[in-house]
């Protein structure tokens, strides 16, 4: 008699762990960038009080959550959406799409152009968050790679970029 194998969904532990690590890192980097970079701060100031968004992978994560606290400060809020009011959900449709994004083989713009992202929430807020992600990527990545990840590499002064980059890395890794 034939045996019909059942295949369970949800494996690929290494890819999942990599994406989870990157999301954790980007989440904390956004928190740091909102303190350091005027443009990121301005984008968050323009969003409603308590605004919170998540960026994650479908169907079961990983996910990261970032939001404004009572004082309007931007905070990384962990990975668990349970009990949090989330205004904007950005979801990559599958793990492979997330791997392409977070190994920077595909820009955020290209990912949305290729229909890999689902955006659930107000469009103006989504536009603001994509601009924030672009700026954070420029800080986190070497120029050669960041140039592939964003549409237009900004012409910031070198000294300021390096100073902010150090502070953002410090914030993301050590919580400084």
């Amino acid at each position: 008699m034939n045996e019909y194998k059942e295949i369970q969904s949800g494996s690929k532990p290494f890819k999942r762990a990599y994406v989870a690590l990157m999301l954790w890192f980007v989440g904390r980097a956004i928190e740091a960038a909102a303190r350091v970079d005027a443009a990121v701060k301005a984008e968050f100031d323009g969003l409603s009080p308590g605004f919170t968004f998540s960026l994650g992978v479908m169907p079961q994560g990983p996910t990261m959550i970032v939001g404004k606290d009572d004082q309007g400060l931007v905070r990384y809020r962990g990975w668990d959406p349970e009990g949090q009011k989330i205004d904007l959900k950005m979801k990559v449709k599958n793990l492979e799409g997330a791997i392409l994004m977070f190994t920077f083989q595909e820009s955020t713009a290209m990912a949305s152009a290729r229909n890999r992202l689902i955006v659930d929430g107000e469009v103006p807020a989504a536009c603001a968050i994509v601009r924030v992600l672009d700026i954070v990527e420029v800080y986190l990545l070497p120029k050669l790679i960041a140039k592939l990840a964003v549409k237009r590499y900004p012409d910031w002064s070198f000294g300021e970029k390096i100073r902010n980059r150090i502070r953002i890395y410090g914030g993301a890794i050590f919580g400084l």
């Binding site: 713009a109 949305s112 152009a113 103006p124 536009c127 672009d134 549409k151 237009r152």
Partner: peptide, 13 residues
């Protein structure tokens, strides 16, 4: 214009 999603698909920023 900064809040309109169609900008995602534009080649240049």
């Amino acid at each position: 214009a900064l809040g309109d999603g169609s900008i995602f698909y534009n080649p240049e920023d």
